Amino acid sequence: MAIPKIYDTALKQETALLVGVITQHTTEEKEREYLEELQFLVETAGAETKAIYTQKLATPDRATFVGSGKLEEIKAHVIAEEIDMVVFDDELTPSQLRNIEKELEVKILDRSNLILDIFAQHAKTAQAKTQVELAQLQYVLPRLTRMWTHLERQRGGIGMRGPGETQIESDRRMILDKISLLKARLKAIDRQNETQRRNRGEFIRVSLVGYTNVGKSTIMNLISKSEVFVENKLFATLDTTVRKVVIDNLPFLMSDTVGFIRKLPHHLVECFKSTLDEVREADVLIHVVDISHPNFEDHINAVNETLKELDSLDKPIITVFNKIDAYKPPVEENEEGEEVKVTLDDFKNSWMAKNSDPAIFISATDKINVEELKDKLYEIVVKLHNERYPYNNLLY
C-alpha cells in the first residue's frame, strides 16, 4: 500500500536581510536607530529579520546603493541562508532597484515600498484604500522598466493604442489614467468629509497626534470609552477615527490619527495629508510620546516637523508622556563629569522648566494619571468652549 504524501500547507514566514548606509550626514548610532525601526516595520509586515548589513560611504553608490564588494557579501548570505527578500533603509532609484534585483535575484524592497505594503494591509475605509493605491501607483510609475511582468490590461482594443506602442508605454498611460481617477475620487471623498466636519456643529475638536505605536489608540479608548483597534505594530491605525466624548457634562469630539514616522517618503506624506485634515481643523492637540523609547526626543521633533507642515504648531497642545511604567532612566554626565541616572522626576522638572505647554505623565495600560489627563483636557476644552460660545456656557 502506497504511503500518501503529506504536504505542509501552512504559509511560511518570509525572511529578510536589512541593508543601511552610514553617510557623512548620519552617524553609526543614528543609522542603527533607523535600522531598528526598519526591523520593526519588517516584523509589522509579517516577515522575520535574519541579518543586518551596514556600510560606510560618503554617499550611496549610484548603481547599487552599496559597494560591489558589500553586494557580493550580501549575495553570499542570501544564497547560503535562502533569504526571501532584501530590504534597504532608503528609497532606491529605479536603476539601483533594477541592478540590485539582477544581482541578488530575490525580492528587493526599500523603506517606501515596505511602508506602502503595511499601509495596504491596514487600509479599511474607502479613503485609506484610495490613498494607498494612489501612493503605490506613484511609486511604481518611474520603476516600470524593472517589473518582471507587465500590468494586467484594464483597457485596450481598436483605436486605443498608438502604432508601435510598447508595453511599458501602454502600462505608463494606464497608470497615469488611474492616478487621475484616484485623485478625482479623493477630492470627492474630501468634500464628503468636509461636509461631515461642518455638520458636527458647535463641538470643540481634540486630535491625538504622535509617532507611530506610542499608544494613541489606547488613550482614545480610555477617554472615549470606545473600542478602537489597538495592536503593538507600526501603523496599526491608518484611518482617522472620530468619537464624541463627554467629561463632566461637557461634550467634545476626539479623533485618533495615523502615526508619524521618520524618513517617510514625501509623496506618501502628500497622499495622506487629507487624512490629517482632522489635525488641521482641531482646536486642541494631544501629542502622545512613548517615554520608554530611547529616542523619544527624536520622535517629538519628527512629529513637530509634520505639525509645522500642517500649520498646526500654534494650537493648544497637551504633551502626554505615555508608558511611564516602562521608563528606564538613561545615564548622562553631570557638570562634574560623573555619570548619573536621569530619573522620571528629573526629566519632568527639566521638561517643565524648558516648555510652557502642559505635560502629563501617564501609563495608559496601567491607567496611571489618566484622571489628571482628563482634568487638564477638560480645563482647556471648557475655556475654548466658553470663549467661542459665550452664550452657551451655563453648564460649564
Rank of each mutant, 00 (worst) to 15 (best):
I3M: 14
Y7K: 15
L11E: 13
L17W: 00
Q24D: 11
E28I: 06
E31C: 13
R32W: 08
Y34F: 11
Y34N: 13
A45T: 03
A47W: 00
T49D: 09
A51L: 10
A51N: 14
I52G: 03
Q55I: 08
F65L: 07
F65R: 02
L71R: 00
E81F: 07
E81D: 12
D90H: 10
T93H: 06
N99I: 03
N99M: 04
E103N: 08
L109E: 00
Q121W: 05
K124T: 15
E133D: 13
Q138W: 04
R146M: 12
H150V: 00
L151D: 07
Q154L: 11
M160P: 04
D171K: 00
L176T: 10
D177Q: 12
K178N: 09
I179A: 07
I179L: 08
S180H: 13
L181V: 08
L181H: 12
R185E: 11
R185P: 02
A188P: 05
I189M: 05
Q192F: 06
E194H: 15
Q196D: 09
R200Y: 03
R200Q: 13
F203Q: 13
S207P: 10
L208D: 05
N213I: 10
N213W: 04
G215E: 06
L222P: 04
E227R: 14
V230H: 01
E231M: 11
T237L: 04
T237W: 01
T240G: 04
R243H: 03
D248C: 03
N249L: 12
G259I: 00
L264N: 00
H267D: 11
C271F: 03
T275L: 05
E278Q: 12
V279T: 14
L285Y: 02
D290L: 12
N304A: 09
T306I: 15
E309Y: 09
P316W: 05
I317V: 15
I318R: 03
T319A: 09
A326I: 10
P329N: 10
K341L: 14
N349D: 13
S350C: 10
F361I: 12
S363N: 00
K367C: 06
N369E: 09
N369R: 14
K374G: 02
K374Q: 14
D375E: 13
V382T: 15
K383F: 14
P390Q: 07
N392D: 14
